[in-house]
Simulated scan of single mutants.
Amino acid sequence: MNIRPLGERVVIKKVEKENVTASGIVLPDTAKEESNLAEVVAISEELLNHKEIKVDLKVKDKVIYSKYAGSEVEMDGEKVIVIKYQDLLAVIG
């Protein structure tokens, strides 16, 4: 997949939650809450070269994003989300 976001945007891919609880109970897909944890796939050049915004983000970083932010797109059979940098809440790790 070759995607290059424009403006102050980032492309992320959702990281799916475990289907098994800590006690070993298997949860069906209908009982799962949608995760807002993702992995960074691409960062726009404009954002990386921005003089006023210090971007402390790299490809493959795990991030938490706003629940209803971004646009979901399917490319090469994979679903990704194109999101504004401001809608990223935290970097994990």
Rank of each mutant, 00 (worst) to 15 (best):
K51D: 11
K13V: 09
L57F: 08
A38E: 06
I64P: 03
K67G: 04
I53W: 02
N2H: 10
V11S: 05
G24Q: 03
E72S: 12
V41R: 12
A31Q: 13
E16H: 11
S35K: 03
I3G: 01
D61E: 04
A42I: 09
V59Y: 03
E33W: 03
G7H: 02
K13D: 06
G70I: 01
K60C: 01
S71P: 03
V15I: 15
V11F: 01
K60T: 15
G70N: 02
V40L: 10
S71Q: 10
V15H: 02
R9E: 09
P28H: 10
A22T: 11
E72M: 08
K51H: 09
E46D: 11
K13W: 00
Y68M: 07
E34Q: 14
K51R: 11
A69V: 06
K17G: 14
E8Q: 11
A31K: 09
Y68E: 10
K14E: 13
E45N: 12
E8H: 12
E72G: 04
E34V: 10
K54S: 11
I25C: 03
S71D: 10
T30M: 07
G24C: 08
I12V: 15
K60N: 15
S44M: 08
N19T: 10
V63F: 04
K13Y: 05
L47C: 08
A22K: 13
E16L: 14
S23M: 11
R9M: 07
K60L: 13
K67P: 04
L57Q: 01
V11N: 04
K13Q: 15
D29Q: 13
P5W: 00
E34A: 14
L57G: 07
A31W: 09
V55W: 00
K14S: 13
V63I: 15
V63K: 05
K13C: 13
H50V: 03
E46M: 06
D29C: 02
K13M: 15
I64L: 15
E16I: 08
E46T: 09
I53E: 11
E45W: 04
P5R: 05
G7Y: 03
